[in-house]
Nucleic acid binder design. Structure first.
Length: 626
RNA sequence: GCCGGAGUGUUGGAAUCGGUAGACAAGAUCGCCUCAAAAGCGAUUGCCCUAACGGGCGUGUGGGUUCGAGUCCCACCUCCGGCACCA
């Protein structure tokens, strides 16, 4: 592996940082977790940017979130890649050491730099002047300052920043507190609030007040200004790979970089025989692709051979889905207006930032161009968890993989699907267990036997047994309907098991065919989305009308779902003392009367004064005695 | 370090609005069926005391609010996830 500097293409997503952040507020039906991850990823911070003069000539910009601590600056740090470094050290005794450090830093990956733990750096031999008080402070280069964030240079305030503290103590640099830490403070850098000290015109102010006043000073003296920084970086879209949309740019020796004209889009991938990456795009080896003419001057020119990150494609495919057969344009904005936004988007949590942020960005760009009808592509987002095994994500390299094909063969797709739904809340990770799928397999087999059994039907008139079975069926239907709407599939499975058991019990005592069929029919309709094959097979064999897949979702009947009697709890001082069956429409007075009549409750009441009764019919009566 | 989420039986989990904690499964034990086993069917299964009736305790810990708290409030502990020299 080698690191190499390449000229590559970027999308300027940073121009949209503020909107991508602010519009998270619009995403009412997105999980909080994902929104938080996006906020962190964008990483907005407010502060000030200002200019620091170098003694003997030169200057650089720094960004800080703590302008209130500017009097505590005791040194400055530039990133090793900072463009000013060469100029600062040229011809000085420190030059060799600085260059060696830069060399080392350029080879180490960010991970290695971090892994070292200790903060390292070297002195440039040069000094900077603090604009607020003219103090002369040394300039270092150190790899804990990143070129990619802010200005690639910082004012170091060790008293209020732990990183600067670590560096200062390692290299014996001065530390001046500018925020008074609490009396019991025994830590090192103190980044909390407190009165400002050692800071001339900021003394005595709180952190926020001092921040404002410092920014005001910087602006009034023309040294700097209020500034907002984002952690979000521009989006590198160049890939030196075959699979990806070609970047539609032509490099002309006389006109420079020229976009491929609209009429010539899209640029299609050429056929190649060798896709293997060799440090540059496989397209570079295809002369018929590379050699072209400049759309502006008509002279010979070369095509860009990098392809786009495939995240680019996944950032707008949903717009294409609105108009998939359009040969003239990516999509017709009118059709997109009809379909967008996507009502319900489902994906893994691994897409929380990259895909979902890029898709939001591209949608906003297209919106600004008047092409996309909405600023946000996905109205509702649902993120599902992963199935793990032995405490780890399944992966071939770890060898902890359960192959679905094996499961289809041993238990069937229906049992597998049902177990997936049943194993836990779909938003959470879930642990795979073989005995779990055995359970859903057994359940489906019970349903099969129930429907295949030879039942001797009775032609007796309807009675409470029928009503009870239909009650169970319609209450199950109510629960399943509600839970599916809430995406709570794990709790939508048990009602089916309850209904199957009730059906089984029902067949033991003079079953009526009408009732049995009505309840079984509902069971199959509910089972169909979860375990479709067996549900359809039974439906067919029982000779129910039409095709199961074409049936509408049934409505539950409130009259049948209503329970006539419920178990009422009698509490004495909050403790359950008795349970009695009461009519569902019992009045509070009657509930209290029955509660007081309970012998079990009386044992705890007698000899005490009843101070209060709380009746919540028909479920509960609480008798408070003193 | 910052941010987010979660702690419930032996296990996965349920309890939707502050009102029966543990639905439904899994596992285990016992029984029926069988020559036997598997499958199936039935029963039991939070912990402790009790021969039993019954009682006490119990949702990470400690406090609080309430007639009543797994659920609300405060403090703490632990675990998981995301970001992380981001100035």
């Amino acid at each position: 592996m080698v690191r190499r500097n390449l000229s590559q293409w970027f999308f300027r997503i940073t121009d949209y940082a503020e909107r991508l952040l602010a519009d998270i507020e619009m995403l009412e039906h997105w999980p909080e977790r994902v929104k938080t991850m996006q906020r962190n990823w964008i990483g907005r911070s407010e502060g000030a940017q200002f200019t620091i003069q170098v003694e003997g000539g030169g200057r650089f910009e720094v960004f800080t979130t703590r302008p209130d601590t500017i009097f505590g600056m005791t040194f400055c740090v530039l990133a090793p890649e900072h463009p000013l470094v060469d100029e600062l050290v040229a011809g000085r005794p420190e030059e060799a050491e600085v260059r060696a450090y830069q060399e080392k830093a350029s080879h180490a990956s960010e991970l290695e730099r971090l892994a070292e733990g200790e903060k390292t750096g070297v002195f440039t031999g040069r000094y900077a002047i603090n604009p607020v008080n003219g103090k002369r402070v040394p300039i270092y280069i150190a790899d804990y300052v990143l070129m990619g964030y802010g200005t690639g240079a910082i004012m170091a305030v060790p008293a209020e920043d732990q990183r600067d503290w670590d560096f200062a103590t390692r290299y014996g640099l001065e530390i001046i507190r500018t925020v008074q830490p609490p009396d019991d403070w025994d830590g090192e850098a103190y980044s909390g609030d407190g009165p400002t000290i050692n800071s001339d015109f900021l003394n005595g102010l709180s952190r926020e007040e001092a921040k404002e006043k410092a920014i005001q000073w910087l602006e009034e003296n023309g040294v700097g200004k209020r500034s907002v920084n984002y952690r979000l970086r521009d989006w590198l879209i160049s890939r030196q790979r075959y699979w990806g949309a070609p970047i539609p740019i032509i490099d002309c020796p006389s006109c420079g970089l020229v976009p491929v004209p609209y009429e010539q889009l899209p640029v299609l991938l050429p056929e190649v025989t060798d896709w293997l990456p060799k440090g540059k795009s496989p397209l570079a080896a295809v002369d018929t692709f590379v050699e072209t003419t400049c759309p502006e001057c008509g002279g010979p020119a070369k095509r860009e051979t990098d392809t786009m990150d495939t995240f680019v494609d996944s950032s707008w495919y949903f717009l294409r889905f609105c108009d998939p057969r359009n040969d003239d344009a990516p999509f017709d904005p009118e059709k997109a207006r009809y379909w967008m936004p996507v009502d319900q988007y489902i994906g893994g949590i691994e897409h929380a930032v990259l895909h979902l942020l890029y898709a939001r960005f591209i949608t906003k760009v297209l919106y600004d161009m008047g092409l996309a009808p909405v600023e946000e592509p996905f109205a509702r987002l649902f993120t599902q968890g992963m199935i793990t095994l032995g405490g780890a994500k399944m992966s071939k390299s770890k060898g902890n993989v359960v192959d679905p094909v094996d499961m289809y063969e041993s238990h069937g797709a229906d049992a597998l699907r049902l177990y997936h739904l049943f194993m836990g809340p779909p938003t959470e990770d879930a642990v795979w267990t073989n005995s779990g799928i055995d359970g859903t397999r057994r359940f489906l087999e019970r349903v099969w036997r129930l429907a295949a059994r030879d039942i001797e039907y009775s032609d007796r008139p309807e009675d409470e047994r029928d009503r009870e079975l239909l009650g169970v069926a319609h209450r199950s239907l109510r629960k399943v309907t509600e839970d599916i709407e809430r995406f709570q599939f794990n709790t939508a499975v048990p009602p089916l098991m309850v209904l199957a058991n009730a059906l089984s019990d029902y067949t033991n005592g003079e079953p009526r065919k009408e009732t049995f069929d009505a309840a079984l029919r509902l069971l199959l309709l509910m089972l169909a989305p979860m375990s479709p094959h067996i549900a359809h097979e039974i439906w067919e064999r029982r000779g129910f009308e039409g095709m199961l897949a074409e049936q509408p979702w049934p409505d539950w009947d409130p009259d049948l779902a209503r329970e006539e009697t419920v178990t009422m709890v009698v509490q004495v001082n909050g403790k359950v003392r008795d349970r009695i069956d009461v009519p569902a429409d019992i009045t509070p007075e009657e509930a209290e009367r029955l509660a007081l009549a309970s012998e079990k409750a009386r044992a705890f009441i007698d000899g005490h004064e009843v101070r209060k009764m709380v009746a919540r019919p028909p479920r509960l009566v609480n008798i408070v005695v003193g």
